[in-house]
Amino acid sequence: MTAGLLVLALAAGFAAGWIDAVVGGGGLLQLPALLLVPGLSPIQALATNKLGSVFGTATSALTYRRRLRQDLSTALPMAAVAFAAALGGAVVAAHLPAGVIR
């Protein structure tokens, strides 16, 4: 990886983090930047992008949980459905040919 590409990837990561913190949707910037990194497969780019999203969402959820008392009887089934859908999406992405993702 060249120094210029490293700087571009870092800048995209910081910009995506800022966008996520302000309005959400930073992955729309981060994923295309990750796909430009040579040697990184599309699956690795998707997984890296999703890892950042997981940490951001977990931080937001913990902050929300500390500040407000929510109804866990509603939140837990929603979390289970979201987990199952994410797992299903990961399985589908892992089985797609590389040309479909790029």
Rank of each mutant, 00 (worst) to 15 (best):
T57Q: 03
A79K: 01
L76N: 05
A75E: 08
S53I: 06
V37D: 06
P38E: 06
G88A: 09
V22P: 00
S73I: 03
I19Q: 09
L72H: 08
S73G: 13
S73M: 14
A85K: 00
L87E: 06
M78A: 05
A79N: 05
L40T: 04
A90Y: 05
L68R: 08
G27W: 03
V22E: 12
A12E: 13
A16C: 04
R67Q: 10
M78Q: 08
I101N: 01
A9P: 09
F14Y: 14
G88P: 03
T74G: 05
R67H: 07
A75I: 09
F83N: 10
S60R: 10
T2W: 04
F55G: 00
G4T: 09
A9Y: 12
V92C: 04
R65F: 14
M1R: 12
R102C: 10
L29P: 03
Q30F: 15
A21R: 12
A21G: 15
L68C: 08
G52D: 01
L31Q: 01
A84E: 11
V37I: 14
V81L: 15
A98P: 09
V54F: 13
A21I: 06
A12W: 14
G26R: 04
V7Y: 02
A58T: 08
L31T: 07
D71L: 08
L46H: 00
T48N: 13
A45R: 00
L31P: 10
I43S: 00
L96M: 14
V23L: 06
G25V: 08
D71M: 02
L31R: 02
L6P: 03
A79V: 04
L51A: 15
D20G: 05
L76G: 01
Q44S: 01
G27M: 12
L76K: 07
A45V: 09
P42A: 10
A16W: 06
L62P: 01
D71T: 05
A84D: 13
I19D: 13
A3F: 11
R66I: 06
M1A: 13
V92H: 01
P32N: 01
P32Y: 00
L46N: 02
G13Y: 13
Q44E: 09
L87F: 09
L68Q: 08
A82F: 06
T63S: 10
A16D: 12
A90K: 07
S60I: 03
K50N: 11
G88Q: 02
V23C: 11
P38N: 02
L31N: 09
L46W: 00
A94K: 05
G13Q: 04
T2Y: 04
L46S: 01
L68H: 06
G39V: 05
T48S: 15
R67S: 07
A3P: 11
V92M: 07
A33C: 11
L36R: 10
V92Y: 03
L8V: 12
